[in-house]
C-alpha cells in the first residue's frame, strides 16, 4: 500500500493564506491525525487532497505519483476515499445502493452493456449488492438496507458514509470529523473499526476537532493553526506541547 505525502502545500484565496507551507505524511497501516482549532485550515487541506481545490503551490503524492492536479474523480480512482464533515449521502437512494455506488471504482461492465441489459451488467449489480450486504453485516446495519438513506438517524448516516468510502477499497481513507455528534458507545465502536482497517494496511487520515478521540487512536498527529503546522509528533508529545495547549485555550474542545 502506498503512503500519501503532502509536500509544502499552500492555498491562497486572494490575499488570504488559508494554508501556507504545510507538509505531512499518511503512511499505510496507521491512523494519522490532523487536528486544529476551527478555521485552522483543516477542511482546506482535505479539499486540496480530494481534488476539490487547486494548489497555489506544493505537491501531493500517492506513492510516487503526483495527484495534485487530478480532478476529484481521478483522485478517488487513484485510491483516496473520503467522508464529508457534513454528511452527504444520496438521500433518496436506499442505504444498500448508496454503498453500491461506492464500488464504482471497481466496476467492469461498460455503459453499452448496461443499456442493452446484457447479463454481464445485471450480474455485476447483483454481485455488488451482495458485497454491500457484507459491509452492512459488518456494521450491523442490515435492517436499514432498503430504507432511503435520507431517512436514517444521524449516527447511522455517518456509518453509511464510512461504509460507502470503504466500498471503494481505498489505499487512503480520509475521515472528516467521523464521530461528530456521536455518543461514547458509538464512537468507541467506530474506533474499533478504524483500528481494524489500519491493521489491514489502510492509511487513515483522521481529521478531528475532538482531541481525545485522536490521541487514543493515532500514532502520529499533526496540528494545524492558522494554515501552518504548529506541531507534529506522537500523541503524548502533542498533548503536552504548550503551543498546542495555547491554540486550544479554553480546553472545552479537548474533552
Amino acid at each position: 500500500m502506498p503512503s500519501l505525502r503532502i509536500e509544502n502545500i499552500a492555498k491562497h484565496f486572494g490575499g488570504l493564506k488559508a494554508v501556507d507551507g504545510f507538509s505531512m505524511e499518511v503512511p499505510p497501516g496507521e491512523i494519522t491525525g490532523l487536528i486544529g482549532p476551527n478555521g485552522a485550515g483543516k477542511s482546506t487541506v482535505v479539499n486540496m487532497i480530494a481534488g476539490v481545490l487547486s494548489l497555489t503551490s506544493g505537491d501531493i503524492k500517492l506513492g510516487d505519483r503526483s495527484i495534485s492536479t487530478d480532478r476529484t474523480e481521478q483522485v478517488a480512482r487513484a485510491g483516496i476515499a473520503r467522508t464529508f464533515q457534513s454528511i452527504r449521502l444520496l438521500p433518496e437512494t436506499t442505504v444498500l445502493d448508496n454503498i453500491v455506488i461506492g464500488f464504482h471504482r471497481h466496476e467492469k461492465a461498460g455503459p453499452l452493456a448496461a443499456l442493452l441489459g446484457l447479463p454481464s451488467a445485471t450480474r455485476e449489480l447483483r454481485e455488488l449488492r451482495e458485497k454491500a450486504w457484507d459491509l452492512l453485516e459488518r456494521f450491523h446495519m442490515q435492517e436499514y438496507a432498503f430504507l432511503a438513506a435520507g431517512n436514517l438517524a444521524y449516527g447511522h448516516q455517518r456509518r453509511v458514509e464510512i461504509m460507502r468510502a470503504m466500498a471503494s477499497d481505498p489505499a487512503i481513507l480520509m475521515l472528516d470529523e467521523p464521530v461528530a455528534g456521536m455518543n461514547d458507545v458509538e464512537s468507541d465502536e467506530l474506533a474499533e473499526i478504524f483500528k481494524q482497517l489500519a491493521e489491514q494496511g489502510l492509511g487513515l487520515l483522521l481529521i478531528e476537532h475532538n482531541v481525545g478521540f485522536v490521541t487514543r487512536l493515532c500514532r502520529q498527529i499533526y496540528v494545524l493553526d492558522a494554515g501552518r503546522l504548529l506541531a507534529s509528533g506522537p500523541p503524548e508529545q502533542i498533548v503536552n506541547d504548550p503551543r498546542v495547549i495555547e491554540a486550544y485555550i479554553g480546553g472545552a474542545s479537548a474533552a
Binding site: 476529484t72 444520496l90 433518496e92 453500491v100 455506488i101 471504482r105 452493456a113 443499456l115 455485476e124
Partner: peptide, 23 residues
C-alpha cells in the same frame, strides 16, 4: 437493473459526492 442506473441517480442527487466516489 444495472449500476448505470445507480450512477445516474447519484449524479442527479449530488454531483460532487458522485465525483468523490470516482464517477
Amino acid at each position: 437493473r444495472t449500476t448505470l442506473g445507480r450512477i445516474f441517480a447519484a449524479l442527479a442527487q449530488d454531483e460532487s459526492v458522485a465525483a468523490s466516489l470516482g464517477v
